[in-house]
Design a protein around this nucleic acid. Structure first.
Lengths: 337, 337
DNA sequence: CTGAAAGCGCTAACAA
DNA sequence: TTGTTAGCGCTTTCAG
């Protein structure tokens, strides 16, 4: 028993294919009575429309693609979850791709997705291979950048420089003068780069720039945070009293390592993270972090996309607020002794 | 300048459309020389094939859909990440849906996805609305169940009853005799139900079944775990000395609440979780939990799907191993006094 | 090894 | 308000 088609429904309902098509996509154009007959026929046959035919004929796929570095980080899975809800509520589906922080891999993912004739694509960050952009261009796929800000493309994100600056000012104001930073891998990642620049630039202006030995890059994992702390604590001499981590996962790793090393937090060492993952408020001591609201980012990006696709209004540049949440891992530095 | 089509490539290369089509999907059927000319034309025009046309004509979309309760739980985002990698490596794309643990919402999601003419669908659990199954049936979409086991459908998952049993035996063997359980919401969730049954059934056989007051259901969140502990600790009289939580998020919430209440873990209370999230090994005390390997589940499900789609071999019923990892939150019960 | 031609199932003018 | 009809861009027999 083969899958039923529009024609079968039309025959059973005693109307034309066009009417069934309208009943499906613009019911307001069909008389009440006819509509009922069509719906009955659809139920009776268990008719399921074929999206590829619909896409081919209409030129719109009602599908949006999102390409993220990884789903293993809660901030991305949360923002995807937020996007997904909004999209589904508008009858759109989400195609997903990931590239594990590799912009060359991203090219292939974007190409594969562009072939799918998606109506729009969501990318993370402002760093992309030229080829990625040209594929988007040649296939005529609309794109929106998230997490970062851009002057060239529609975007919705955070001021990552300001995030670093916020951390710097908070720690400086507490009285710290010797700083360290554990950044994510900066290559292929403008968010990581800008946070570092914001942190260091602000400290420089305050005449408190850390020594290069107090800076390091680590992969976004607990292990990375642990290794980072060990690395920047190298020599006991100019040892930092405060460290800013590129995100909460690094900060948590750093905190765990401090505990393992018997370093009191925040007594001997202050730690600031970024993202405000739910767990950061629960552990002990709770983590001082910079709140980003990733879920809201996803929802807002999806909403902007819906407006773009449905009303043709291209999204501009939206800057989402960031704020430092002081909790238990920051305090004034220990007295020199 | 409009997007170029197969016909444009054919004209430029001086061959027929059929040859270009073959050059793309079965290059081994085309003479070396011709192939080169076609490839050159493709590059020159920046030709990107249209997947909807290809899908309509061939009946295969090279797209797989996954429907999960939520991406907010790391176990699902990890398994999706695992699936995604395997799929991408085989030239398949992943369409994503979620329903927030609501099986009625799942119907709509599955319908929307089935319309997309996906080649196969991955569902979570064995609990599904009859309508969900009939949509899959009528649209001829192949489906595989994950996380749970089923005798009716291809599946790859865990023996959730055994998970509960494992926790029960571990705690009983440590000497505990008064037990509590904080389950996830069992409605619409066979995993939660079976874990509870495994736990209670095993204790019953050991003549140590907990009182109903020591059992509760909570949403999968830290707040749920906290509320759960407060609830089952109600009366100090028959207060449990050990509690099994439906997953690690609940267990973590439970652990946080115990800390807040000044209850020593594991001195006064033992806690067992399930999932083995990375964080459970890092916090203090580290959580005793049941390891599930969610990423591997996703990869294996995707691989089974690839075999099904490419070689026509329907996957059977795969049971993935589970094992209890004893860490710091379980110990013998306190001495009565 | 290559070409011609018939659809795949649906939408969107245009007509009625 | 409804029907007729011509494609959408590609794959795939079937011939040659």
């Amino acid at each position: 028993m083969r899958r039923s088609r529009l024609e079968d429904v039309a025959r059973l309902a005693g109307v034309s294919m066009a009417t069934v098509s309208r009943a499906l996509s613009s019911p307001e154009l069909v008389r009440e009575n006819t509509l009922a007959r069509v719906r009955q026929a659809i139920d009776a046959l268990g008719y399921v429309p074929d999206a590829s035919a619909r896409t081919l004929a209409s030129g719109r796929s009602r599908t949006v693609a999102a390409v993220v570095p990884t789903l293993d980080n809660a901030i991305f899975s949360h923002s995807i979850q937020g996007m997904q809800s909004v999209l589904a509520a508008n009858g759109y589906q989400l195609l997903l791709g990931s590239h594990d922080y590799n912009l060359d891999a991203e090219i292939g993912v974007v190409r594969a997705l562009a072939e799918r004739a998606v109506d729009a694509m969501v990318l993370v960050g402002a760093d992309h291979a030229p080829e990625t952009l040209s594929i988007l261009n040649q296939s005529g796929t609309r794109a929106i950048l998230t997490w970062s800000l851009s002057s060239q493309y529609p975007c919705i994100g955070f001021d990552n420089f300001e995030i670093g600056a916020l951390a710097a000012r908070h720690l400086f104001d507490l009285g710290h003068r010797r700083f360290g930073m554990i950044s994510g891998i900066a290559k292929h990642n403008d968010r990581a780069r800008l946070r570092t620049e914001g942190f260091l630039g602000t400290l420089r202006a305050l005449r408190a720039e850390p020594a290069p030995a107090s800076l390091c890059e680590q992969p976004y994992s607990f292990a990375g945070g642990r290794a980072g702390l060990r690395q920047i604590l190298g020599d006991a001499a100019g040892r930092p009293t405060a460290v800013f981590c590129g995100n909460d996962v690094l900060a948590l790793g750093c905190l765990f390592e401090a505990a393992a090393m018997g370093i009191d937090v925040p007594g001997q060492l202050s730690i600031v993270g970024c993202d405000d993952l739910p767990i950061t408020a629960e552990i002990s001591p709770p983590l001082t972090t910079i709140a980003l609201q990733s879920k809201s980012l996803g929802e807002k990006a999806a909403k902007a996309l819906m407006v773009w696709l449905q009303d043709g209004i291209e999204p501009g540049r939206t800057v989402l607020p960031v704020s430092l949440v002081q909790r238990g891992t920051t305090a004034p530095p220990p007295r020199e002794g």
